[in-house]
């Protein structure tokens, strides 16, 4: 019996290399990540904005030169995280810092939920980079608080929690309370 002729596979490596380079160039590793936010619904002219007590508001202003004004005092981005944490948690129940409301939260029991709201305002001339840095620091402050609470109650960090009930409980105890003011036209773009 005659042997079938062998197929030359030497060029196979070249072809697959070519394909490999093609895919390497046309594709990107899926690394889409970022900071999540929920925008407020469009303002309803019939509904009056709720009155919030002054002690419950923590204002963060960013001007067009990317300078910060936190609670009417100039501040630095490096200090913002601690300031926001102190504000929301109000550890020594000061009169000037936000009120707390006792709430019954499943899996946590009675918890003093802070009524503090962080109000973020920026100028049209603020750089996006600075804005994201501030958003990042404020998120970090809330995440830190969530981590602390989660460590205390469930012995794990917040993002290591696996039970959705626990996650929901912590989210309820420390909500992401960052509100952005309606944009105002001040300063040039």
């Amino acid at each position: 019996m005659k042997k079938p002729p062998e197929i030359n596979t030497g060029s196979m490596a070249d072809i697959s290399f070519l394909l490999l380079t093609f895919f390497l160039l046309t594709s990107s590793i899926n690394t889409d990540m970022g900071i999540f936010r929920k925008l407020p619904p469009p303002p309803d002219p019939n509904v009056k904005p709720a009155d919030i007590k002054q002690r419950n508001i923590f204002t963060v202003l960013i001007n067009k030169n990317d300078r910060l004004l936190v609670d009417n005092k100039p501040s630095d981005i490096r200090m913002l995280r601690q300031q926001a944490k102190d504000f929301i948690s109000n550890p020594s129940n000061l009169e000037t810092l936000p009120e707390k409301k006792l709430e019954e939260i499943p899996y946590l029991g009675n918890y003093m939920v802070s009524k503090g709201v962080i109000s973020l305002q920026n100028d049209r001339g603020t750089s996006y980079d600075m804005y994201i840095k501030v958003q990042n620091e404020l998120t970090a402050a809330l995440n830190d608080l969530r981590d602390e609470l989660s460590m205390d109650k469930f012995n794990r960090k917040f993002d290591e929690l696996s039970d959705p009930n626990f996650i929901e409980a912590v989210q309820k105890a420390i909500p992401i309370s960052i509100s952005e003011a309606e944009p105002k036209d001040v300063g040039e773009q």
Binding site: G34, I35, F36, L39, P40, P42, N136, P183
Partner: peptide, 15 residues
Amino acid sequence: QELRKYNALLINYST
């Protein structure tokens, strides 16, 4: 503002 107007409220600032 446009996104709010059209009720696309879930956003992600890509970083």
